[in-house]
Computed example of a mutant assay.
Amino acid sequence: MALVERTRRHGAGEFQLLGRTWELLPEVWLPTLSYSTEFYTTHLPYPQDGSFLEVGCGAGVTAVHAALSGCATVTATDVTSQAVDNTARNARRHDASGVTTVVSDVFTGLDDHDQFDCVFWNLPYVAISTDYRYPDGLTRAVFDAGMAGCRAYVAGAARVLAPGGRLFLGLGDIGDRDAMEGAAAEHGWQVQLVAASRGEPDAHVEHRLFELVRA
């Protein structure tokens, strides 16, 4: 909960990341508290002239970077309206065309026909008991009660992937990798490690990018 409280203390304002200045709204995760956003944003293979879906967009760093890196369309979803608004603001700020924002719990807010060439979610790292009740939206950036978010992601991903599309997720070494891989296997996915790294300000955590492919 310490990182959540540090985000709250920062409040609304601006932050610097990846050579750009970003706006941060209240109750939205501050990406500079962890190396994770920088790591995943710079290691994802963005489909040139293709479509990209980010689940859990937060302040919008990865979604905006995807649009500026050659994706024709980017859909950014989050469970909180504050994060969706924050991403839309940062897309306008950086003239990132083709970015659409949607309030969605994993895939629930998408249309049935929506499909994407690349799908990614930086999963909440901390698995917590199934009966945990989120006090607010911000804590959902950190905790995954009963790993329900992870399970919904691997269960619904096949529907939102375009033919030949690629599926990625991020999970640090403080997360439950065995449970993640078990959930993926239940839905026909094999998990492959693509990249891993440590960096400031949380160098004690190894951030890991995984690709899920059909078993």
Score class of each variant (00 low, 15 high):
1 M>N: 04
4 V>E: 12
4 V>K: 00
9 R>Y: 06
10 H>L: 08
11 G>W: 02
13 G>Y: 06
14 E>P: 00
15 F>D: 02
16 Q>H: 13
18 L>D: 02
18 L>W: 05
23 E>F: 12
24 L>N: 04
25 L>V: 12
27 E>Q: 02
29 W>I: 10
29 W>A: 03
30 L>F: 05
30 L>M: 12
37 T>W: 03
37 T>G: 07
38 E>K: 13
39 F>S: 03
40 Y>H: 08
40 Y>W: 14
41 T>H: 04
44 L>S: 09
44 L>N: 14
44 L>K: 03
44 L>C: 02
50 G>A: 08
51 S>L: 10
52 F>E: 15
57 C>K: 02
57 C>G: 02
64 V>N: 07
64 V>H: 00
66 A>T: 09
67 A>P: 00
68 L>N: 08
73 T>Y: 04
75 T>C: 06
75 T>I: 10
79 V>M: 04
80 T>N: 00
80 T>D: 00
84 V>R: 05
85 D>G: 06
86 N>E: 01
87 T>Y: 09
88 A>L: 14
90 N>M: 13
93 R>C: 11
95 D>R: 13
97 S>R: 13
97 S>K: 09
97 S>V: 06
100 T>A: 13
102 V>Y: 05
104 S>Y: 01
104 S>T: 10
107 F>H: 12
111 D>C: 11
112 D>I: 15
113 H>E: 12
114 D>N: 14
114 D>E: 15
122 N>G: 15
128 I>A: 04
132 Y>R: 03
135 P>A: 11
135 P>F: 09
137 G>K: 08
141 A>L: 11
142 V>H: 03
142 V>G: 04
143 F>G: 06
144 D>K: 07
145 A>E: 07
150 C>F: 00
150 C>K: 01
150 C>Q: 10
154 V>H: 08
154 V>A: 13
155 A>Q: 11
156 G>R: 01
157 A>C: 10
159 R>F: 05
161 L>T: 07
162 A>S: 09
165 G>C: 06
168 F>R: 10
170 G>F: 09
170 G>R: 02
170 G>E: 05
180 M>F: 06
180 M>T: 11
181 E>P: 00
182 G>S: 11
185 A>M: 11
188 G>A: 11
190 Q>S: 15
190 Q>H: 12
192 Q>H: 14
192 Q>K: 14
196 A>W: 10
196 A>T: 12
197 S>Q: 14
198 R>V: 05
199 G>Q: 00
199 G>F: 00
200 E>R: 13
200 E>L: 11
205 V>S: 07
205 V>M: 01
210 F>T: 14
211 E>V: 12
211 E>R: 13
214 R>K: 13
